[in-house]
């Protein structure tokens, strides 16, 4: 059993229909990809289908596990259970001076 605490912000929150939830994958040491596959989105697919292309995280999304933002090819990172997984679209249009 691998549990993960999911947080979804902005676009991913709208995809999922919730902002915080704990999910449980039935086997141990599930990967981040496994967790994403277990999250159904309101369009009838899963979060994995929406965020991942050819096994790589799409460039306009971010997945942050316990504070570390995953690179596109790091979705196979194994979880021990209890990690905080935050998903969001990357905001480009923030400004500063």
């Amino acid at each position: 059993m691998t549990s993960a605490k999911i947080a979804a912000l902005g676009t991913t929150r709208k995809m999922l229909g919730f902002s915080r939830r704990t999910v449980e994958v039935e086997f141990d040491n599930a990967t981040v990809a496994d967790v994403l596959r277990q999250l159904p989105t309101l369009d009838g697919r899963t979060l994995y289908d929406n965020l991942v292309c050819d096994g790589r995280l799409r460039g306009d999304f971010a997945v942050v596990v316990d504070g570390l933002s995953l690179k596109a090819d790091q979705l196979n990172r194994r979880l021990q259970g209890g990690e905080e997984v935050v998903t969001m679209a990357i905001l480009r249009h923030l400004h500063g001076g």
Binding site: A7, L9, R13, S19, R20, V64, G67, M88
Partner: peptide, 12 residues
């Protein structure tokens, strides 16, 4: 707060 989910503001 994405790196410190404990402090995430509740969207609601």
């Amino acid at each position: 707060y994405t790196a410190q989910p404990k402090y995430l503001l509740d969207s609601e």
